[in-house]
């Protein structure tokens, strides 16, 4: 697809929303509503998107949005799906939108419950790697080395980012995928594929946050791309929790992690030794991922 093939016709997101310039989370929703719309109903949990959506009766989206409390998204989405079914709206795609806090942390119980019951909707996590709505506090999605307002300079986050994809895969759900804002076609393909399926579908979108990450608002796509090129955020999908498949191999574009870290002020206190350790981690994770991919290929 060429850039000129894009028209504004299918856009379900209005301009004039409340996101900061360069907000990855806003872009993620623009892409996903476009791919899944127009017959959509969105449940949005407490997050930056509670604000981005605008103050009613204004709205940022051309579809119904049901805001819900922070820990509740997984269950509200389930209820919404079955409530719409009860009213005969089987064709409406139900999407739950949550930040990393609403997914990895406080929302994990309801998410796990819904995934285990194989509830019939799509759960999207836009991951900006901290609690941004409340001003950049550490979440369990914050990567090692990042500074936040609860790990302020000279401190930084210790401990690994929770591997949410493996957690979701362990639930054996029909579909789980990662997506990058720098690869909109890949994201759209995955969303369309997910939409065709039944049961619980999960997507994890890395969503750069200029004020939180200490980056320029014009760098959001660049950073999204670097995250993929450095293997920090690989692009793949998992079918039924067991078939792992890469959707992009950064063979020629492989970039050292250092470049990604140095582009963000939240990592500026990280020294060379730590960078090396982090690079090692990323390499190990990548190997693990390749192994899971090749094992599931062999099983096929």
């Amino acid at each position: 697809m060429k850039i000129t093939d894009y028209t504004m016709e299918n856009e379900l997101m209005y301009s004039g929303h409340n996101a900061c310039p360069g907000c990855g989370g806003a872009l993620a929703v623009r892409y996903l509503t476009r791919a899944l719309g127009p017959n959509l109903a969105l449940a949005i949990t407490a997050s930056c998107w509670s604000i981005i959506a605008g103050a009613p009766p204004l709205t940022a989206l051309k579809c119904p949005i049901l805001h819900c409390p922070f820990p509740s998204a997984g269950a509200v989405g389930s209820g919404l799906r079955r409530g719409l079914n009860a009213k005969g709206h089987y064709d409406t795609t139900v999407v739950v939108l949550a930040g990393d806090g609403g997914t990895f942390d406080i929302g994990l119980q309801a998410l796990s419950g819904a995934a285990q019951r194989n509830e019939d909707y799509i759960f999207i996590c836009y991951d900006n790697e901290a609690y941004m709505n409340t001003g950049m506090q550490t979440s369990s999605a914050t990567p090692f080395g990042a500074r936040t307002t609860t790990r302020p300079y000279p401190l930084f986050k210790h401990g690994q980012k929770k591997d949410i994809m493996r957690i979701m895969a362990a639930h054996g759900i029909p579909y789980a995928a990662t997506a990058s804002l720098a690869f909109p076609q890949d994201m759209e393909n995955k969303l369309k594929k997910a939409q065709e399926m039944k049961g619980f579908r999960f997507m994890h979108v890395l969503s750069p946050c200029p004020p939180g990450w200490g980056t320029d608002s014009s760098d959001t796509i660049h950073l999204s791309r670097l995250a993929v090129f450095t293997n920090f955020f690989p692009l793949y999908e998992i079918i039924n929790g067991e078939q792992w498949r890469m959707t992009y191999h950064p063979e020629k574009t492989r970039t050292p992690l250092k470049e990604y870290l140095e582009a963000q002020r939240r990592f500026r206190q990280v020294d060379e030794v730590t960078i090396e350790a982090l690079q090692e981690e990323v390499d190990q994770d990548w190997e693990g991922l390749l192994k899971r991919v090749s094992t599931s290929n062999a099983e096929k």
Partner: peptide, 11 residues
């Protein structure tokens, strides 16, 4: 479905 609404958002 099909009717735009921003339910229980920021007030």
């Amino acid at each position: 479905p099909g009717i735009q609404a921003n339910l229980h958002g920021l007030s």
